[in-house]
Structure formats: structure tokens, C-alpha cells
Design a protein around this nucleic acid. Structure first.
Length: 556
DNA sequence: ATAGGGTTAG
């Protein structure tokens, strides 16, 4: 018996176990009644949770003679980690009815569960509970609260919690820095970083990751390079998380050379880092490189997962040739990954973008389980091929199957109307989206509506639609109208629209080019020239030159 | 005597 205790103790503290060893252990646990020991009971619950056996965990919990705080926490955590939030909450309320008081760890776990299930009401309630039970100043509860509020988009609330906590440890600093990073406020993150340094707190990998997360476009590249330098100085560049975030930061900033340099300096990049690099090449338009690195990954004998495959498929969808996409499809079948909804949806998109809508439809039809994402992919493909009525038939099928259309469904449907030029159905589905499905239209919906109305001669109506929107109006929407002005050859309205864009957008150059293009198309050469003279950058001059050529060939 | 936990990436 004592030997068994010893063996179990050794094995249970390991995170990874082979399946057969886990089964042996399970048998041993049942035989020894070790689970009646309060100390081992929590360890065993943890063991079951790690191995995905919630059923046994619950059984053990229910049969346990004495339920300590430890045991309660581990069973709640087991459910929360398996995303069984309902069960986790009901266990928590059950715990409140016992003698045992929840402690800071219990609350931390429940707080996280609230944010992962997007339950703001619940989070506020639990926050009250924390305060009432006298844990309002506890740094463990606070870091969980900071993260939870930021995940739900309430970064100011997160900040209040942070400043309300007297003992700010490293984890709490990291939580608030990540909170600001997550919403793109890198400057605030850096400010906190310097505050933290002035208090002699040493940053770690989490800190750097939080700071890097906030950098999202190429204008911030110098900040990113500075942080990269900091990583090297702190010897954090070998940390797997840090290096993958460096790769994705450089990718977001369109610095693929730097991204590749970081990548190739790694001893054994993990799947996330590979996928950051591949996605980076794909998003900067270098689809060939994206596929090349996917090939390299395979040659190193590594197995891609569904997220990586979906990203490679997005690259394959952008090449005119369907060949690479087919190869990836074969890879998916060989590795038995075809049941992943994300992969199937990416396959549908790839085939339809490469012109093989039939193959896309086929993939859709043989999917064992279709969800709203797969329907959205198919509708997008149908729309791309001008088959608006087919797209609407799919929409009806969604409703018949009791699925709930989401904002992407309507984006795809409106796109289908744009391609087919059917204003009436577009108007109708836009109305139903708002009234019947209570979906607040977003930028992309307005962009499609503006294009749909504007392209079919309803420039005035499109303009009025934009004027009815609350400020600030996204410049993509104005841009769509400018495009329509170009197509309809209306340079007066284009002038007004461009003015709005010059006021609000940072990409003045591109809109100047478009406007001068419209002027040229309308024969207003002097106005076009005046605009062109404003531009100093060589590249922009080149583009303007092209627009002159285009305008000239149109009027000739 | 032992025990659990809060913050990171594609």
C-alpha cells in the first residue's frame, strides 16, 4: 500500500502521461481508495482534469468524505478549463451554501470563467462578492479581474482595479500591461512599463509580450525594434512566447525580413511561431513564401494543426492556381483533419476563390456537421461567383436548420447582392438584419450598402445613408463612395467625399491619387495637376502618373 | 510535513 502511495505521488505530479499509463493509474486509484485521502484527492482530481476525464473527477469529488477548499477549487477549475462554464458556476454557488468559504483562488478561477464565457453581468456580481468577502485588496484576485475586464473590453475598469490594489506584484503589472496591449494602447503600456521599472520591478516574458501586443502597424516599427532590443538585453529572446510574438509583431508591421531573421535565429520554433511567419508572408502578399515555409515545416517532420492549415489555405486561396490548394486538401485528408470546421470552411473559401466553386460546394456537402461559419464560407463563395439567389437559398437553409445567422452571414449576403447588382434584395436583407435579427450594422455592412446603391446609380442615396450615420464615420465607408464616384464619373460629389477623407484618414496619399484619377477621368486636368503637385513622394507620383494615363485613355 | 492559483503567442 505504501508503495502505491509513493508511485502515485510521483506520477500525479507529472503533467504529461501516456494514455496507457493514465489508465493504469486510474485502475490503481480505484483499487487503493487513495482518493479518500484529502491530500491525494485534490491531486487526483487535477490528474483527471489534465487527462480530460471530467466524469471520474466528479465521481471522486462526490464520493469524497471531506471537501476541503483545495478540493472545491480543483473541481471548479477542472470544469472551467474544460469550458463547462455552467457547471463551474453551479458548483461555485453550491460551494457558497456550504461551510467552506471560497478563497482568493476560487474567485480567481470564477473570474476567469466569467471572462471566457463573455459574462459581464456575472463578472460584476463576482467582483462584488470579492469585495464583500474582504479579498478586494488581494493581488491574485486583482490580476484575474484586470485580465477579465480587459478581455471584455473594459480597460478603464481594469485600470481602476489595478490602482486599487496596494501590493502590485509582477503578475499584476503584467496583467495591466497586457490589458493595454490588447486594446492597442501601446503608449499607455510603455508608460506603465517605465513606472514599473522605477519601482525596481524586473520584467519577464509576459511583460514584453504584453507590450508587443499593442503594436499593430508599420508606423510603430521603431518601438517594436526598441522592445526587441530590450528582449535581447534581458535574455528573453529564447522564450517561446516572446519569440513568436516578435515574429508576429514584425509581420503585422510588414517587416518580413526582420520576422524571418527572428525566426531563423530560433533553435526549435514551435507551431505558433511557424504559423505567425506563414500568416505574415500571406498577409503581406507573398503567398509563394507562405507556401514555401509550409513545405519546409513538413520537411522537418512537424505536423501542422488546424489553425496553421487554415492560414496556409488562406494563402493558397490568393493564387490563381488551384494546384497548391489541392495539395493542402490532400494533406488534410492524409492527416485526418477534415472534420475540423475551421479547415473545411477555409477549403470552401479556397476553392471558390480559385474559381472551383463546385469543389467548394462538394466540401460543404460532405461536412458531417455544418455550423454558421461553414455556411458563411459557402455564401461568400456563391456571392463571388454572382450566384446571389443560390446564396439566399443557403440563408433560408440556415434558418430552417435552426442556426443563427451572424454579422458575417449578412456581410456575405450583401456582398453577393453587390456582385449581382440586385439593389432590391440588398435593401431588404439589410433591413431584416437590423429589425429581425437585431444585428447592429458594422463598417463592412455599410461599405457594401454604399457600393450597392452607388454602383447602380443611387449616388445620392448612398451619400445620404452615410450622412445619417453617427460620427465618426469609418473612412472605409467614405472610400467606398469615392470609388462609386469614380465609376459613375461624378467629380463634384467626389470632391466633397475626398474632403471628408482628407480630414479624417491617415492615408491621404491614396485618396489624393483616387481623386486626381477621377478629375482626370472627368477632363478636369488642371484640378488633377494641382492635386498631383501636392505630392512629394516618388512612389505616389508614379501612381498619379498611372492615373493620368488611365484618365487619358478613357477620354481619348 | 505535504496541497491549489492569478498574467503571454499563431
Amino acid at each position: 500500500m505504501f508503495l502505491h502511495f509513493h508511485l502515485l505521488h510521483l506520477d500525479l505530479s507529472k503533467v504529461y502521461l501516456s494514455l496507457s499509463r493514465a489508465k493504469q493509474l486510474h485502475a490503481l486509484i480505484l483499487k487503493t481508495h487513495l482518493s479518500h485521502d484529502p491530500f491525494y484527492a485534490t491531486r487526483i482530481v487535477r490528474f483527471y482534469a489534465v487527462n480530460g476525464d471530467l466524469h471520474s473527477a466528479c465521481k471522486l469529488f462526490d464520493e469524497s468524505p471531506s471537501q476541503s477548499v483545495y478540493l472545491w477549487n480543483s473541481i471548479i477549475r477542472a470544469h472551467a478549463q474544460a469550458h463547462k462554464f455552467e457547471e463551474a458556476f453551479s458548483l461555485f454557488t453550491k460551494m457558497l451554501r456550504t461551510e467552506i468559504r471560497p478563497d482568493n483562488f476560487t474567485y480567481a478561477c470564477i473570474i476567469r470563467a466569467c471572462s471566457e464565457s463573455f459574462d459581464l453581468e456575472g463578472l460584476k456580481l463576482v467582483h462584488c462578492g470579492v469585495t464583500v468577502s474582504g479579498l478586494g485588496l488581494d493581488s491574485i484576485c486583482s490580476s484575474a479581474l484586470v485580465t477579465a475586464y480587459s478581455k471584455l473590453g473594459l480597460v478603464d475598469e481594469a485600470s481602476r482595479v489595478f490602482y486599487g490594489t496596494p501590493q502590485q506584484d509582477l503578475v499584476l503589472w503584467n496583467s495591466i500591461i497586457s490589458a493595454y496591449g490588447n486594446c492597442g494602447r501601446w503608449d499607455k503600456g510603455l508608460q506603465l512599463f517605465s513606472e514599473m521599472r522605477s519601482m525596481e520591478m524586473m520584467p519577464d516574458g509576459y511583460t514584453i509580450v504584453g507590450l508587443l501586443l499593442g503594436l499593430s502597424d508599420s508606423s510603430l516599427i521603431t518601438i517594436g525594434q526598441g522592445l526587441h532590443g530590450l528582449c535581447l538585453k534581458c535574455n528573453l529572446d529564447s522564450n517561446a512566447h516572446v519569440s513568436s510574438v516578435l515574429v508576429s509583431m514584425y509581420s503585422r508591421c510588414m517587416c518580413m525580413n526582420s520576422a524571418h531573421r527572428v525566426f531563423s535565429g530560433l533553435f526549435q520554433p514551435d507551431l505558433v511561431t511557424w504559423s505567425a511567419l506563414i500568416t505574415g508572408y500571406s498577409q503581406s502578399g507573398d503567398y509563394g513564401k507562405a507556401l514555401f515555409f509550409f513545405k519546409n515545416l513538413n520537411m522537418e517532420g512537424k505536423k501542422a494543426d488546424s489553425i496553421l492549415i487554415a492560414s496556409v489555405l488562406a494563402a493558397a486561396a490568393q493564387i490563381a492556381n488551384v494546384g497548391p490548394g489541392c495539395e493542402i486538401h490532400a494533406y488534410v485528408l492524409r492527416h485526418g483533419l477534415e472534420s475540423h470546421v475551421m479547415i473545411s470552411s477555409a477549403l470552401i473559401a479556397m476553392y471558390s476563390k480559385c474559381g472551383f466553386l463546385g469543389m467548394g460546394t462538394r466540401v460543404f456537402e460532405i461536412m458531417p456537421e455544418k455550423n454558421i461559419i461553414s455556411y458563411n464560407s459557402l455564401i461568400l463563395g456563391l456571392g463571388l461567383h454572382g450566384l446571389a439567389s443560390e446564396a439566399f437559398r443557403m440563408f433560408d437553409e440556415i434558418l430552417r436548420n435552426g442556426l443563427k445567422p451572424d454579422e458575417y452571414t449578412f456581410t456575405a449576403l450583401l456582398g453577393a447582392c453587390c456582385h449581382a447588382g440586385i439593389v432590391k434584395d440588398g435593401r431588404e436583407i439589410f433591413r431584416r438584419m437590423k429589425d429581425e435579427f437585431c444585428i447592429q450594422p458594422r463598417t463592412e455592412h455599410y461599405v457594401h450598402m454604399v457600393k450597392l446603391l452607388g454602383m447602380e446609380g443611387g449616388l445620392e442615396e448612398a451619400y445620404n445613408l452615410i450622412l445619417s450615420l453617427p460620427e465618426p464615420v469609418d473612412c472605409g465607408i467614405w472610400g467606398a463612395l469615392l470609388l462609386c464616384c469614380d465609376v459613375c464619373g461624378n467629380s463634384e460629389l467626389a470632391e466633397i467625399v475626398a474632403q471628408r477623407l482628407f480630414e479624417s484618414s491617415s492615408e491621404k496619399g491614396a485618396y489624393r491619387v483616387m481623386l486626381s484619377n477621377i478629375y482626370a477621368g472627368d477632363g478636369r486636368w488642371d484640378d488633377a495637376k494641382k492635386l498631383r503637385d501636392h505630392m512629394t513622394e516618388g512612389k505616389l507620383r508614379k501612381i498619379t502618373g498611372l492615373s493620368w494615363i488611365k484618365g487619358f485613355s478613357r477620354s481619348a
